[in-house]
Design a protein around this nucleic acid. Sequence first.
DNA 1: CTATATAATTAGGAAAGCCTAAACATGTCG
DNA 2: CGACATGTTTAGGCTTTCCTAATTATATAG
Lengths: 224, 224
Amino acid sequence: MTNERIEEYLETILYLTNKNKGPAKTNQIAEELKLSPPSVTEMIRKLFGSGYIKYTPYHGVTLTPKGCTEAMRIKRRHQLLETFLVDVLDLDPKFAHAEACEMEHSISETTLEKMCAYMGHPEICPDGNPIGHGECCPTEALNASYRDYIPLSELKEGEQGTIKIISLTREIKDRLSSIGLIPDQEIQVKRKLGQGTLSITAMGTEVAVGKNIASKIMVQSHGA
Amino acid sequence: MTNERIEEYLETILYLTNKNKGPAKTNQIAEELKLSPPSVTEMIRKLFGSGYIKYTPYHGVTLTPKGCTEAMRIKRRHQLLETFLVDVLDLDPKFAHAEACEMEHSISETTLEKMCAYMGHPEICPDGNPIGHGECCPTEALNASYRDYIPLSELKEGEQGTIKIISLTREIKDRLSSIGLIPDQEIQVKRKLGQGTLSITAMGTEVAVGKNIASKIMVQSHGA
DNA sequence: CTATATAATTAGGAAAGCCTAAACATGTCG
DNA sequence: CGACATGTTTAGGCTTTCCTAATTATATAG
Ligand SMILES: [Mn+2]
Ligand SMILES: [Mn+2]
Ligand SMILES: [Mn+2]
Ligand SMILES: [Mn+2]
């Protein structure tokens, strides 16, 4: 078995067992990978032999802990590459998905982590799904940061602060950055309006931010 | 024949015929690719059958125009990836070479061109070799520019200008940028010293530039 | 010009991954 | 219960790319 084939099967099995909330069926895997069912049966037996999957003939396939770890590793590669292709190189998202699924098998862990760092350890893939954390991601630091930072929604009128972390989808982030709300930007809360909506100033202009969004923007408070 | 195998053989044959200034030998190819000589003989026959190479038994292999075009396409992929890994992701150059040689087979032309553009159409690979021009590279614009620009070495004393294109190795470019000589930087020639050496000011400080280097820095003159 | 060292090719075969056609298991419906 | 539709596995075979061992070609030294 080549690495690439193992990876492609495990990735598919992870996807299908999640979708099914149960074992992946031979025919499903065959269709997903565009292979004949006998080819899948053959490979399934090998993956079983190597301890990647649990397999009961005629009943389907689930991942073992070993297989699951491996599958999630591939998924992370795929998502980081896809994010890179879309966010950095500005490729078409659909094209990027297919391209990432090719490249994911040849990129090394070292390169992937550099890429992850280059993008600032992104948390959401352009396809909308969350990206798993990797060795390189500052989980500890982030958690520590979260303790020091407070949601923008908690700032009082007149209080100033610096935006530190924005945990929102790409689309919303894009919208925010177009009105000047990006990490390390100084802001001040001008007024608190109804329903938790805030009126804040950033880069000299005044903008309104809804409650849901304000609660996902972590800031370092500088007091009033 | 899979694409990847064709690519790897052609890349090696291009490298060896250049190095030999003559045909690539079976054993050389085998050693380069870490394969047995019979495996190479077998593949050579297939590549010959597909018109990629000229092959005379017992005498060696050269590329046909078709094979040469293909080989240079792969080489460009390899070099752009290597440049990206080193210059953008900051990987170890030696590691980057090996990694690029893996990734070069799975990256698409579309992605490669986006990557080329992202880096500003680099002209020299970290390994020191020039990178071939691609579809995406602004050859026309560059040629047009060259007509408008003159070498820094041609400026007269007191004349001012803007640096536009620096056609030098990475090392020299790095050295120049550390003293403020980068594209779009305004400079002025203070004095012309002996041997074609110039004393110029950039960002308020005065630096000396030798003749060889000054002749590779194209500037847009603003007169005295 | 021949013996010998070196380089290249032929012969035969293995592993990986895929295929089609045929056989087999399983759940469902009359 | 039994026949059938559906999904799965078995049987047998193909292609690609690689290997080792044996053979053959070429070049060179005596
Ligand atoms: Mn994938
Ligand atoms: Mn894939
Ligand atoms: Mn290469
Ligand atoms: Mn390669």
